[in-house]
Design a protein around this nucleic acid. Sequence first.
DNA 1: GGCGCCTTTTACGTTTACGTCAATTCTATA
DNA 2: TATAGAATTGACGTAAACGTAAAAGGCGCC
Lengths: 153, 153
Amino acid sequence: MKLISAGETAANTNNIPVEAGEDLARIGEMAKKYGVTLRTLRFYEDKGLLNPQRDGSTRLYTRRDKARLKLILLGRKVGFSLRDVKQMMDLYDPTGSNTKQLRLALDKSEKQLARLQKQRALIDDAINELSGSMSAVRQMLTERSATQASVAS
Amino acid sequence: MKLISAGETAANTNNIPVEAGEDLARIGEMAKKYGVTLRTLRFYEDKGLLNPQRDGSTRLYTRRDKARLKLILLGRKVGFSLRDVKQMMDLYDPTGSNTKQLRLALDKSEKQLARLQKQRALIDDAINELSGSMSAVRQMLTERSATQASVAS
DNA sequence: GGCGCCTTTTACGTTTACGTCAATTCTATA
DNA sequence: TATAGAATTGACGTAAACGTAAAAGGCGCC
């Protein structure tokens, strides 16, 4: 309401017609809404993951950009690289069945799942190893304090 | 036998007497034995984690260096940074009880353990999220192929 | 006495996802 | 209209743990 004027000004020779009712967001709003920084949004754009419209030089994010950002964040959460995410999103075709996209996503997901499980195993190992070392250290510490006590007595 | 000559040459004005029976290793041997690269060993030295003797310019790793390397590798395995490892090892005093070292190690270990557990939780989340997405994608794929089949019929 | 292997130092490159200025412009508001 | 708050582009910095040349010296061996 206060950030976006209702309707384009007469001077705006926007060649891309803005569909009525589109709730466009500027970068600050977008960042707050999705818990990312401005830098992040610009970075994603730089990497070709987002493509907001422009009002002059000001970025205007559409519903579509929001959907894409959600996907990016989901991808990040499950450990995909931005490159992977881009690769998958680039296959998106609103007119087709997107079978290729889905297949690629599934393929990448299987590999990523394997990586995650492997990582979990490594972490479990580390936890065990570390716990073991910790008891050993605790043991040494109590022995030393016992020695000190006997020396003091 | 072939890498280390038995006994120093007469010209060797080594001020640090080499204890008899010390099995000194050169960098290649060391690397092979512990599964690290030469670069890694030099890097650790550069960071102050190792301090091999020198025969001229050649590094000679003692039993003590081997023990330290083992500690470094253990630390790495459980996720400590080299800086952490160094900080803990720097407290080592062969003449004292090393209580301070042990306390620091325990302190750092507790924090690292917490980090590891947090990481594991994140990974579990990611695994669940990813598995969910994967079934959704599989579902979509089967639906699409079903549609194709009905179209074909 | 030349070949190959080991070793040395120096130093720049790699990876990922941004952080952090800096300088400038635009916009809204009191 | 002055001032503050957004926004822009550009560019360098960061973290970790090495990788990868490059150029050179030393040593054993046939």
